[in-house]
Design a protein around this nucleic acid. Sequence first.
DNA 1: TCGGTCAATAATGTTCGACGATTTAGTGGG
DNA 2: CCCACTAAATCGTCGAACATTATTGACCGA
Lengths: 226, 226
Amino acid sequence: MSEMAQEAERRSASDRVADAILQDIRMGRLVPGQHLLEPELTARLGISRGSLREALKHLAADGIVSLSRFRGAYIAALDRKSVLDLLDVLEPLARLAARLAAAASPDRAQCEPLLESAARLAELQASGKRGEYLTERRRFYDMLVDLGGNSELARVIPLSRTDLFRTQVESRQTDSQRHRHAMGYTRIATAVAEHDSAEADKAVAGHFAGTRETMAELADEVFPAS
Amino acid sequence: MSEMAQEAERRSASDRVADAILQDIRMGRLVPGQHLLEPELTARLGISRGSLREALKHLAADGIVSLSRFRGAYIAALDRKSVLDLLDVLEPLARLAARLAAAASPDRAQCEPLLESAARLAELQASGKRGEYLTERRRFYDMLVDLGGNSELARVIPLSRTDLFRTQVESRQTDSQRHRHAMGYTRIATAVAEHDSAEADKAVAGHFAGTRETMAELADEVFPAS
DNA sequence: TCGGTCAATAATGTTCGACGATTTAGTGGG
DNA sequence: CCCACTAAATCGTCGAACATTATTGACCGA
């Protein structure tokens, strides 16, 4: 218990705030395009303006919020081109993560949490719990990156910005699109567990092909005016 | 002139400080492992402690400086594994940038600055101006990314951390290694100018193969204790 | 003299309040 | 109805304060 508390206290206030905002986004409490008022947030989170600004700056660097001078912070909203650009960048990194995870994991036990996460994703998708689905999805990617053991990848891969994109499109997808998405993780996790780098790479590539197809099927109203 | 001044003033103080530190690193005025004192920097740069700390936080997020609690900020030093990990991450992104730049550039005129930059790199390498070489190299990558027109790539690709790695190894390379490195940029720029995406991709892949070879040839003393 | 202990110093982490600058909204006059 | 002007709200920066910790160097005993 004390370890948890110490760990929580050791992290700076701005990091805690940034995590809180990210979690609020995943759970739908904050929606893309929403205006973030400094006085409201400092009051709600009980921190100083300086710490909040530090957190917002951090989130802005990751493209989660957009800061415009004297106009405040807004949760970023991705237009269609940004989403396609993001997928182009994310795909090679995710494929690298999958290849490394498949090649690195020495014993099957370490892959067990990944398989469990994929199973939970299928469950959560079926039961329609979108907030939990997005949170679990993020855990899946974090695990995949960790398994690979490439510390630079963890720093670079834009998972938080992908959370943002998922938040935007999640509620507009059809059930079959959601099902296809969830199944993709199962295929990836299976390939990693089997230590099959080539298949893991192909699984991620196929997953992204499906996502691009879904994007093409979505109406323009899903995206802000570009 | 006023436009320049306005543009400089429009950017936040912390961004200016971060850029100044990055430039100092490229020019060798700051070396990996060096301790950054807040009082010294605030006095030299003429900014408040808050703005400086914001900049340091930003640089720490990009892995340029490492912050250790109550001990201050140090210019990061990459061990051998981190360098190899960084290359694994950077390669697919650089290849994507090259493919996009080759595919996107409609007219040859836009590629002219890239070819000029490659020529300048060959010159600077030959004349041994290492600081200018690294600065020009960064400009080359920035142009390559801009030409592709993928805004997410610019956000994700870890060019600053690559600057850091280059700073560490640049002075330890042999002339033939430096020559091979500089020639790689010429081949990339030429392929982009010819709108040959496949060749651009291969040129970058070959460039990275050469860099990995150089890394294997370097002695352990180049890297900090891992 | 050497090694260990301990207090003084310096640097950092965090927060707060203040000031000037700028955008936005609202208001009154033409 | 439109435009200039005022007022409110917000943001960027700075300086100061306080608590916490690492470092330094003096001091002391073996």
